[in-house]
Amino acid sequence: MPEIQLPASLADVEPVRSVRTPAQLDYTFTAGDATTRFLKGITQKKIIGQQANPDSRVYVPARGADPELGAATPIEVEVAQVGTVTSFCVVNLQFYGSGMEIPYTSALIMLDGADLSIMHLIQEIPADQVRIGMRVEAVWRDDADIEPTLESIKWFRPTGEPDDVNVRIPGEIRGTGLGSWVGGVAPTELTVRNPRTGEGGTAEFGGEG
């Protein structure tokens, strides 16, 4: 670091080395069309997904666009309130602002009828017994407390059904999403079938080749 020449008036005082510059920005977040539809469904204790056409993937929660097709998702689809755990993690840290008792489990849950996992809590089972393939169901708040928020579902709990041993990892069928990476192979234009044109893709990634 270069030698700094200070004026005499500052030669013998404790130098400032850091400064706090806190800043707060206030916004009014608007949910837009797709998220508003999803959250209004929640107030009726329905889980509503969207899709671009009757044959394309069902996104829950939807953002209004199908990232495979680059198309709007005008069709609303109610999906099941039961699904399969496709991945999970056990949280052993107390995060600021979280009232959760640790350890607890956050999981990706593929609801029956959906093509995208939602992330939610798993409760009513010890954390060390949660597993991929486990069947779970939504547990809603009391009706009086239902609001347009995903927190209206308190958590998911085991249904007691047998595990789905053929658990469908998101995207596996069409070679997209988490499943594409199973086996340690990254998705590329060569290995993945193009969902718009139907071209390309090796067999394990949904193509013919």
Binding site: R63, A65, P67, L69, T188, V192
Partner: peptide, 21 residues
Amino acid sequence: YLAGTAFSFVSTLDAVGPWPP
């Protein structure tokens, strides 16, 4: 910063159909 939604530029990429990558 404009809308206060972090990494919104990642989700707006959905508009083009960015798959295969």
